[in-house]
């Protein structure tokens, strides 16, 4: 249970880190919070020749708000996001969800960039970023590109990030203030990855009908799953109990969970149905409250 030997680099500038990545081609790994990578190194499931530690690139750790969006540096730690007043105010869904990520010790180290690049389909942050319609800014040797969650999350633990690129920033659009939201999760113990989780955003028009919604599921497929049929069902309608039940049913039909020790596929699908409905109820109650 000890890592295999590697060369260690601790650049202080992003450009330096990119040069190191390019020099080592596929043989290097970026080290951020280490809360996913270190277990893999310890168990020797990963054996990179070089570790490029980005923790000293302090310019990658920040939370900024400008013209309708939040910009979060790739190295920003979970705990900083959890305690951020700006995030709480502009993106309360994130504040709620991030408390489900591991334990305090894990959140003191783990970073948003690491969590997104690790891309565990049961993880909270990929789900929330997908629900909000966020974007990832990837920086590589040949410049920047911006990638949407649907392209970024390719499969189980697999993203569109190239081995020469670094996730430098996450941009989250700020949803209009009256938006209702909910994050629901079932896990075996507090701090475990989700068995099933669902993130919901719901915006009503002045007739109290659904103007816009976002429903994203974790733990039920190889990537965060956007329940598009459920969203479509709600658009332009009064969000009744019956409609929410139906939306939950569609989300369950659209999920493709697998069975493991934490729960069977059938159990997960049933939970999607129940939790989607519950999340919609909570989001609706908040949206109504905000509309007053």
């Amino acid at each position: 249970m000890k890592p295999a030997p590697f060369d260690y680099f601790a650049p202080t500038e992003l450009q330096e880190a990119l040069m190191l990545l390019e020099r080592h081609e596929d043989e290097a790994k970026i080290l951020a919070g280490g809360q996913s990578l270190l277990p893999l190194l310890n168990m020797r499931l990963a054996r990179p020749k070089a570790i490029i530690d980005i923790n000293r690139i302090t310019s990658l750790s920040y939370i900024h708000k400008d013209n309708g969006s939040l910009r979060i540096g790739g190295l920003t730690r979970h705990r900083m996001i959890e305690n951020s007043a700006v995030i709480q105010e502009q993106c309360p869904l994130m504040t709620e969800a991030i408390q489900w990520v591991g334990h305090i010790e894990v959140r003191n180290r783990g970073t948003i960039g690491g969590s997104l690049v690790h891309a565990d389909p049961a993880a909270e942050l990929p789900t929330v970023v997908t629900a909000l319609g966020g974007e990832m800014k990837l920086v590589g040797p040949r410049g920047d590109r911006t990638v949407r969650p649907e392209e970024f999350f390719v499969s189980f633990l697999t993203t569109a990030l190239d081995s020469s690129e670094i996730l430098a920033e996450v941009r989250l659009p700020i949803w209009p203030r009256p938006t209702g939201y909910s994050f629901q999760e079932i896990s075996r113990r507090h701090g475990d990855f989700a068995v099933v989780a669902v993130a919901v955003l719901l915006l009503l028009n002045d007739k109290r009908e659904c103007e816009n919604s976002s429903i994203v599921l974790a733990g039920v497929g190889p990537t965060p799953l956007k329940a598009k049929r459920s969203e479509g069902l709600l658009t332009g309608k009064k969000v009744t109990r019956e409609l929410m039940e139906k939306a939950g049913g569609l989300a369950a039909e659209d999920s493709d969970p697998s069975s493991d020790v934490h729960g069977s596929a059938d159990y997960r699908r049933e939970m999607v149905k129940v939790m989607t409905r519950r999340a919609l109820e909570e989001a609706l109650a908040k949206a109504m409250q905000n509309a007053k």
Partner: peptide
Amino acid sequence: QSILSCLALAVQ
């Protein structure tokens, strides 16, 4: 800040 020392490198 509390951290897990098995998930950090000494060099860090």
